[in-house]
Design a binder for these strands. Structure first.
Lengths: 230, 230
DNA sequence: GATATAATGTAGGCTTGCTTACATACATCG
DNA sequence: CGATGTATGTAAGCAAGCCTACATTATATC
């Protein structure tokens, strides 16, 4: 029962569902399922025909894409409350990206049929969904474009700024990044290599921009990081 | 009158408008305007609040984006029949890209109000529009991702393959690229520099992959170009 | 607690392709 | 038809960062 309540709580806090009435929340609740997710698990993967859509309720998930040449790029790191996998709900097609759990948590699942049934009862929902997809694609396009013309230092600084939005916690001595990514993850996030990321992170530390506090990164000077990202 | 007929002809050949009846074509015709475009002219530019949508009827247009650092990237080279500028029709916002004419021609213009009036009379049109926007964004995302992990040679080869779709004309000795881009244009298309493009094009020529036939590029071996792009 | 696996640290060599600089060819317009 | 702007050709120097290789340190699993 407390789990049920928490599920509703999470759903209510999503912009896209904000205008729903109590009756509709009960419907949404009825049509969706909840599941635990474990670090390393793939929720869906590139090439599959999975057409569910998901809401991340607890934990963290990365959205990755494997290029033909074998490079893995991380398109997004999702934080709690994020809807994902929605691209195939309105228009079914093969997944062109994978969703991989990077921190244990919980997801809420709704399959396409359930969504369509639900959608019919809530006029305007699919329109909002479309706008959300548009916005996400636009964000993603700009993020990738940034990678084209910046040095590794600048890209890493930008990555920090992006991550702070979702995982940053203000602190006396800066902002704590409340998520643990490996150097390989950072590399995939900025289209660089593990070794270069290690070196750059250590340079940032030496320069007093960041600090390592028991496996989390502390952004000591957000201003300097911002300046670095231009 | 012949011009009017030609306008209708072009509109009828667009997928998105294919299912319209004669009555609706007359409406579309009434609500839209035609204009000549000259090489170098900007149809709309980044940052403006222009919310028309356009159809290219003759000539060629490039869609470019200027990064904060001053790099110009060409996101797309449009060929005849292409709808463009439609991103702001459904959801008005600032242009985040510019449309620049690279070959004299003609465009068909419809402003947002006119489109909305028209759209109300043709159920399903805005849905098709949405799908088209989705598809374009997806294409664009993949194109940019390709730029991240490939060498200049590979990127240039890929650019040729893309351009052939829209501007390629089969020939005895290969495929003629029926569009004239400057080396700077190619550079902006693949996120490289003018000098490097010049050198790479000449290398391609020396290797027998392409040829320069009175200012147009002839792809002599599409297979080799394909192999190069992997 | 022992072992295996994953993550991080460090460094040298090497390559791509960007920069800078200048020369030549071509086009456009009065 | 000359003049000016635009496009192309060429080359040397240089730097970012990738690749390879290996050492060390965490973390997970039993």
């Amino acid at each position: 029962m407390t789990q049920e309540r928490s599920k509703l709580w999470y759903l209510k806090n999503l912009d896209i569902f904000r205008y729903l009435g109590d009756e509709e929340y009960k419907l949404l609740d009825r049509y969706s399922n909840m599941r635990e997710i474990k670090k390393g698990e793939m929720i869906y993967f590139q090439g599959s025909s999975d057409s569910n859509f998901y809401i991340l309720k607890k934990g963290a998930v990365k959205i990755t894409k494997l290029t033909p040449r074998g490079n893995e790029i991380i398109l997004d790191i999702l934080s709690v409350g994020t809807i994902f996998g929605e691209m195939t709900v309105l228009e079914p097609r093969e997944r062109d990206e994978s969703a991989i759990v990077i921190e244990d948590g919980l997801i809420c699942i709704m399959n396409r049929d359930e969504f369509n049934r639900f959608s019919k009862m809530v006029p305007g929902l699919s329109g909002k969904m479309t706008s959300m997809i548009e916005l996400k694609r636009w964000n993603r396009e700009n993020k990738i474009l940034d990678l084209l013309y910046c040095t590794v230092e600048q890209r890493l600084a930008k990555a920090f700024i992006n991550l702070l939005d979702d995982f940053g916690i203000p602190h006396d001595n800066g902002h704590l990044l409340q998520i643990r990514l490996t150097h390989k993850d950072y590399a995939d996030l900025i289209a660089s290599t593990r070794e270069t990321v290690t070196a750059t992170l250590n340079k940032f530390k030496a320069d007093g921009l960041i600090d390592f506090e028991n496996k989390y990164i502390m952004i000591k000077s957000l201003d300097k990081i911002r300046g670095m990202a231009e």
